[in-house]
Amino acid sequence: MAPPSEPPSGAETERARVLGDARAAAGGAGESGGVVWKLSEPGRQLDANVVRLAPGARVAPHVESDLDVLVLVLGGSGELAGGDAPEPLAEGSLAWLPHGARRSLTAGGAGLTYLTVHRRRPGMTIGHRPPG
């Protein structure tokens, strides 16, 4: 068995830690919508967001061509559309949104607060203009 690998010389050693309280983020599910928390740790391989949708608000149908997304409902209720028929979402619902699949979310009467987790997108880079 090989010994554990060492971090590169000069690299900051990462440590496990608690980042916050998801229940607190979900507490205002009836308020206006938007991202209420996001993972911003340097060097991470994942992206994660807590998103709040106001009552009746909707994430329009779209296709994410590159990333699978895991959704965990933290508070409120709503509906996931993208399959044969819309599926109900309630606190504790866990949904997988595979890349390439059409999907939308609609908040119920109390709003909808959910956590999304997916692989981190590579940063944007400046390249050369294509010829022509």
Rank of each mutant, 00 (worst) to 15 (best):
A29N: 05
S32R: 15
R58I: 07
P88H: 04
L89K: 02
G100M: 10
R17E: 12
S9L: 15
G28P: 01
R121M: 08
S104I: 00
P122E: 11
G43C: 05
G20Q: 00
A2W: 08
M124A: 14
G75W: 02
L53A: 05
P55K: 04
R103Q: 14
T106K: 14
G78F: 08
V73T: 05
G30P: 00
H128C: 14
V69H: 09
G82W: 00
V73P: 02
A48V: 06
A29H: 08
G123N: 10
V18C: 13
D47R: 07
H128W: 11
P98H: 04
G127Y: 01
L46I: 14
S104V: 00
A25I: 03
D84M: 09
V35L: 08
G111P: 01
G83W: 09
A85Y: 01
A54G: 07
S77I: 04
A29D: 03
P131E: 15
E14M: 12
G34Y: 10
A95N: 04
P55A: 04
H62I: 03
P98G: 09
D68S: 11
R120W: 09
P61C: 08
E64S: 12
T125N: 05
R129I: 07
E6G: 05
R120N: 04
R121C: 06
G111T: 00
V71L: 15
R119D: 12
G33N: 06
P8I: 02
H118V: 02
R129P: 00
L105M: 14
V18Y: 10
R52I: 07
T13N: 08
V73C: 05
P88V: 05
P122Q: 03
L94P: 01
M1C: 11
A101R: 13
V51N: 12
G123S: 12
S9W: 12
S40C: 06
P130A: 11
L19S: 03
P122K: 03
G108F: 03
V71Q: 06
P4I: 05
A16Q: 13
V51G: 01
G33I: 07
P61Q: 13
E41L: 13
E79L: 15
E31S: 06
G109Q: 14
A60Q: 10
V59C: 07
G123W: 05
N49T: 10
P130M: 13
G20N: 01
D21C: 15
G123Y: 09
A11F: 10
A101K: 13
L94Q: 05
E41P: 09
G109Y: 01
L105N: 01
D66N: 13
T116E: 09
E64M: 13
A54Y: 04
A101N: 11
R102P: 08
E87C: 01
Y114E: 01
Q45A: 11
V51T: 14
R121F: 07
L67Y: 13
A101H: 12
M124V: 06
L70E: 09
R52E: 06
H99Q: 14
A107K: 08
R44S: 15
G56K: 02
A29G: 03
A2D: 11
A90S: 10
T116R: 01
V69P: 00
P4W: 05
V71G: 08
V36L: 12
G82I: 07
L67P: 00
E41K: 07
A60R: 14
G20R: 07
G30T: 00
A107T: 01
R58H: 05
G108C: 07
R17N: 04
D84R: 12
P3Q: 05
V63C: 13
